[in-house]
Amino acid sequence: MTPPLTAGVLATMQDLLAVPEGRGGAVWRLDPAARQLDANVIRVLPGDSVARHVEPDLDVLLCVLAGSGELTVGDEAQRLGPGCVAWLPHGTERALAAGPDGLVYVTAHRRRPGLSIRPAEAGTPRRAAEGGESACLLHRICPGCDRPAEDIGARYCSRCGTELPSAEGV
């Protein structure tokens, strides 16, 4: 039997936004191991972006905490500012671009089940990782230079050579 999680306040908005200037990427993650939900606070530095991608399996809820930017869903660009909430259904192509003040947002989505090994079905294309990509793509944000990796299977940043985080911990 799984022990109950401790519920309650995990952080304050002041804590989440008090990140040293110039630091991008994941600045906070929901940590309890026995959770059903994944949540992350992401900072995209001014002028940076998250490349177009599709989350094949999970719906994602995104809420802007600070800054500004643009969310592109398919071919439609939408302005983002503090308090904007966006729903990104699975299968939707999306991209984010930070404005001149950067963009800080929280994502929430169902937690992915653990990976399992099973035989491939005949005629089914294989994905880069079993179970698809992480909904928030944190494993593709370089901890060294905060740039997103363009290649879905990249293990190292093509810009600075830093090893990228594992998708399993996201």
Rank of each mutant, 00 (worst) to 15 (best):
V41A: 04
V64K: 01
P3L: 09
L16K: 03
L10Y: 11
A39Q: 03
P82G: 00
D38Q: 13
W28Y: 06
V19L: 06
G67W: 06
L71R: 03
A34P: 06
A77F: 09
L37G: 04
D57W: 08
P82V: 00
V41W: 00
V54N: 13
G22H: 09
P56Y: 05
G67I: 02
L80Y: 01
G22N: 07
G22P: 07
A77I: 04
E55F: 05
I42D: 06
L30E: 03
L61H: 11
D59E: 11
A39V: 01
R29I: 07
A51K: 10
G69N: 07
P82M: 00
E55K: 09
R79D: 15
R23K: 14
V27W: 01
V44M: 08
E70Q: 11
E21W: 09
D75A: 13
G22F: 10
S68T: 11
C63P: 02
V60N: 09
V27Y: 01
V60G: 07
L80P: 00
E21R: 15
L17E: 02
R23E: 12
Q78G: 06
D59F: 04
R35T: 15
P4T: 07
D48M: 13
M1N: 15
R23H: 10
H53P: 14
G8N: 05
L61M: 13
R43M: 04
Q78L: 13
V50Q: 15
D31K: 14
A11S: 05
R35M: 12
G67Y: 02
D15R: 01
L16S: 09
M13G: 09
L65P: 02
L10I: 04
R52I: 12
A11T: 02
M13H: 10
N40Y: 09
T12S: 14
A11I: 00
A66G: 01
R29N: 10
R43I: 01
D57I: 02
D59P: 04
A66L: 01
